[in-house]
Nucleic acid binder design. Structure first.
Ligand SMILES: [Zn+2]
Ligand SMILES: [Zn+2]
Length: 317
DNA sequence: GCGAACGTGACT
DNA sequence: AGTCACGTTCGC
């Protein structure tokens, strides 16, 4: 409550144009971004700009970041050590989080077949977890992922093993990239994939592409094969069957795709209308709202089950 | 049963 | 189009 209100209050000064210390064009680590990122990578950039001011506020310690606790809780299991595993300033590690995701891209996550297709079955669930320097984590929380990626176009996604969630998660554990990969100059720890934005052109190295491509390919397979098979994806066979296959059941809740940028965000911004209005609004943070779910159900239903694969690819290309 | 979040309609 | 509120679904 208190936190919440404080964050709400923050909105006023910025909205009225007070500059604070926010100087977008001179930001030390935004030079790159400002240089080449004006092209619309994601329309998040604009919105992120807006929220950057909030970040600065929290960064300056003017008030505790509303979700600092949550961040800490989420970050800990991934990198117990106080060190950031790599030094990509514009990178972002993606940790996994439990919430259910669209079956279509998530099939057999629990699969006993984890060995058979030992690829990124776990990834679709991955959600963003900012692991920049722990100290600035809270501050950069809701701005680094999408705004900075626009500049350096470097997103690292970490597939975290279904941490101890014994529930059949075992398969996902080390299943992914056991060997690890290299990205640019630094090595990626096993379980990490790198995403890049399309227009980066030469920027997207083979290493990055291969890894993500593999990831997506895996998703696609699952997507198509599970489209209407009433898969034994344990939990939600019912849902998928109802909503996208039988076509009979009218209004089943759609599920987040789990692979789009918003889906992979891990924490709520705390300042958007949805966050502020969570009590009564019952809506997910606007920055976490699945791109697919934003679309009209009519235009998305099929995509989820059949076109999903291609669409997923389009996300990268 | 509870919390998260989707669907929807009313309102601005 | 964005916000708000409510009902509802869904996973745990
Ligand atoms: Zn939010
Ligand atoms: Zn999504």
């Amino acid at each position: 409550m208190a936190n919440m209100s404080s964050s709400v209050c923050m909105e006023t000064p910025h909205t009225h144009g007070h500059a604070h210390s926010y100087t977008p064009t001179t930001g030390r680590d935004f030079s790159l971004q400002m240089d080449s990122c004006m092209n619309p990578v994601l329309d998040y950039s604009a919105q992120m700009e807006r929220y950057r001011s909030f970040a600065n506020f929290y960064k300056n310690g003017a008030a505790p970041f509303p979700q600092a606790a949550k961040i800490a809780r989420l970050a800990t299991p991934i990198f117990p050590s106080p060190m950031t595993p790599w030094s990509c300033d514009n990178g972002m590690l993606w940790g996994r989080k439990p919430p259910a995701v669209n079956v279509n891209v998530n099939v057999n996550v629990n699969g006993a077949h984890a060995h058979a297709h030992a690829h990124r079955t776990a990834m679709p669930r991955a959600e963003p977890l900012n692991v920049h320097m722990p100290s600035k984590m809270s501050a950069d929380n809701f701005l680094s992922p999408l705004s900075q990626v626009g500049g350096a176009e470097c997103m690292n996604r970490l597939k975290v093993p279904p941490q101890s969630s014994g529930s059949g998660g075992g398969g996902g554990a080390g299943e992914a990239e056991r060997g690890g990969a290299t990205f640019g100059g630094f090595a990626l720890p096993p379980g990490v994939i790198v995403m890049t934005t399309l227009h980066s052109g030469a920027g997207s190295s083979v290493a990055t592409m291969t890894d993500s491509a593999f990831q997506i390919a895996a998703d696609c397979q699952h997507s198509s094969s599970a489209s209407c098979s009433g898969s034994n994806a344990s939990t939600n066979a019912t849902v998928s069957a109802n909503s996208s296959c039988s076509g009979g059941a009218a209004k089943r809740k759609r599920k987040r795709c789990g692979v789009c940028a918003p889906c992979r965000r891990l924490i709520n911004c705390g300042v958007c209308s949805s966050c502020r209005n969570r009590k009564t609004g019952h809506q997910i943070c606007k920055f976490r709202k699945c791109e697919e779910l934003k679309k009209k159900p009519g235009s998305t239903v099929e995509r989820a089950s059949s076109v999903g694969a291609a669409d997923t690819f389009r996300w990268f290309f």
